[in-house]
Design a protein around this nucleic acid. Structure first.
Lengths: 189, 189
DNA sequence: AAATAAATAGACAAATTTGTCTATTTATTA
DNA sequence: TAATAAATAGACAAATTTGTCTATTTATTT
């Protein structure tokens, strides 16, 4: 019986609601109701809604990279690892009913109102960009640096574009098309 | 003396504030204050905030395609027109302080709460996708249909990815990189 | 068992939200 | 000029928001 404590229940419930309904559309009270936690406990553990939002993003980052790294590491070649990233994305988006990216969604909601959140979002994307780039560098080892640079960022943009468009169309074609494109850009050798 | 009427002032002010602050972060009262319009006038002309949001998106669509079509039509070849789309994007994003796409931003905010808005957003993106595809079809005329299909959607994803990433990084490199990629994908001939 | 810490329930405040309604003033049109 | 329409100012309601505070109950630890 691994019953979760109040803190964990709050973060879990907030994460679900922030993602499904949006940050601004989710009130503290709804989180407390569904997590079955007292209001004082939330402010004891997190201090404010904003702080809870930051923890939500931090947890989301860990979960995301935990997933994508697992999928990538199951493959052998850099190219296969790269494809696995897109496979993970496709699986993940479907699993989450095409709600898109938690970070991009949050950024649209907060605008410039929370520097800590903006920072968390930027760092997450920086890390993802580098994560993808490392595979391209290995897959295209020996090629000119500027070619690696362009292809690497193009694939990153395809990845991000696929997330956003899957949310808009509520379909998987953006990811599938992106995958077809990377097979052209990075030939398996 | 082309003084704008109440209706126009409301829509103009709402458009500015919805874009900069976000839809949910902008209250009716702030719009009325800055537009210098009475509350009754807003509800007379638009009926509700939701309805105002829909008109905001409709106006944004017209403005967007007005701009991109103008930039594209100034060029001669399909390839040049395509590049012009990205030039317009780069110009537009910089001009608007990297606030990103009004439609994607709104989608993140409303979630599934407004079917008419979701519809407006989807239609806008469908049209943009087709707009881009038409240039690729002309530029790659004669090539296999499936190749045109993949390249066309890849460029659409690069375009969309560039918008979102420019917002995140607050820099123009995503658009510039996307542009470099399309020069590789669609050789000028 | 006693003492300390953690969690709960819920009232309450202060601010903000969208939307309605009335009364008055300003424009427009006949 | 007279009648009609459009716009204004602002009070008000009802609901919702985040956050605080008190009193009570439940766990944990010594």
């Amino acid at each position: 019986m691994s019953k979760l404590g109040p803190r964990e229940r709050i973060l879990e419930t907030a994460s679900r609601l922030f993602y499904i309904q949006g940050y601004n559309n989710t009130g503290i009270n709804q989180i407390l109701d569904e997590a079955k936690v007292a209001k004082a406990s939330l402010y004891q553990h997190f201090g404010s809604k904003d702080e809870l939002g930051i923890h939500y993003l931090k947890a989301a980052r860990e979960e995301w990279f935990g997933g994508i790294e697992k999928w990538a590491s199951a493959k052998k070649t850099p190219f296969q690892k790269l494809v696995a990233c897109f496979d993970f994305l496709e699986y993940s988006l479907q699993q989450n009913n095409f709600l898109g990216c938690k970070f991009i969604n949050m950024l649209s909601e907060i605008g410039d109102t929370s520097a800590p959140m903006s920072h968390e979002i930027l760092e997450h994307k920086r890390k993802l960009r580098q994560f993808i780039k490392s595979f391209i560098e290995q897959a295209l080892h020996g090629k000119p640096a500027d070619e690696i640079d362009v292809i690497s960022d193009a694939i990153y943009l395809l990845f991000e574009g696929a997330i956003v468009e899957s949310k808009i169309y509520k379909e998987t074609w953006p990811v599938k098309k992106a995958k077809k494109m990377i097979r052209i850009l990075v030939e398996e050798k």
